[in-house]
């Protein structure tokens, strides 16, 4: 069901209660509450964080979208704004923070670095985009994105929330929470435990190539 139909359920309201009753869907009500109070995690990585603060300040005022309450703890946050370069040294902490956030949770990759490494992509300590580890809902281009661009990205996120349905969202499903992401390990380079077998075989291939 698309958005328009959700807000107009096509029920006739009797004349005597015309201005006293409104009919909507449960999804619409649920999403309206969630989209109007997306609380971001107070968490800044680099340059983009400054534009994020600027977007909170008077001129751009993210409070208009119900997003002014930045929570310093992941347990109370709905949105992780990855605002800056994701480095290998930092990424275990980011994944841990993400795992600590309760569902429903969203991730926005703000800026070129968080989206794909940006100007620092070739750096030896840089993870080329947070989406290598965490599922991203909205990518915002720019280096750094202006506050306007950030707000446009967050409106995009609100539109995404609007389209979700209580019947389908995974966080009310039964069964174990499979969304937990294994925390990367700092080895000779960054080790993603999900790719252990792949790393091992590629490293072994290196050795045979060398001896050949």
């Amino acid at each position: 069901m698309d958005n328009e139909k959700l807000s107009l359920p096509q029920y006739d309201i009797p004349d005597d209660v015309q201005n006293a009753v409104a009919i909507t869907t449960l999804d619409r009500l649920y999403n309206w509450g969630r989209r109007s109070s997306v609380w971001p995690l107070m968490f800044g990585l680099a340059c983009c964080a400054i534009e994020m603060i600027a977007a909170q300040a008077a001129r751009y005022d993210m409070a208009r979208f119900g997003m002014e309450v930045m929570r310093p703890t992941p347990r109370q946050a709905d949105l992780m704004l990855v605002s800056g370069t994701v480095t290998k040294k930092m990424v275990p902490s980011i994944v841990r923070l993400w795992n600590q956030m309760p569902e429903p949770k969203y991730c926005v990759a703000m800026g070129a670095c968080a989206s794909g490494g940006g100007p620092f992509k070739e750096g030896y300590n840089v993870v080329a985009g947070i989406d290598k580890l965490i599922p991203v809902d909205v990518y915002i281009p720019g280096c750094p994105p202006t506050p306007q661009a950030l707000i446009a990205g967050l409106i995009k996120l609100q539109q995404k929330i609007d389209k979700q349905s209580l019947r389908k969202v995974h966080w009310y499903r039964k069964g174990p929470d499979v969304m937990e992401i294994p925390v990367p390990i700092l080895g000779p380079d960054l080790i993603d435990p999900r790719r252990n077998a792949e790393i091992k075989s590629a490293a072994a291939a290196l050795a045979t190539k060398e001896s050949a």
Binding site: A128, G187, L190, A204
Partner: peptide, 21 residues
């Protein structure tokens, strides 16, 4: 890149045997 990512490991590296600091 042999590891298809921004990664570089020594030859014959086994991630399961690694003990991080």
């Amino acid at each position: 890149n042999p590891f298809k990512d921004n990664l570089k490991f020594p030859q014959d590296f086994d991630p399961e045997k690694w003990t991080p600091d």
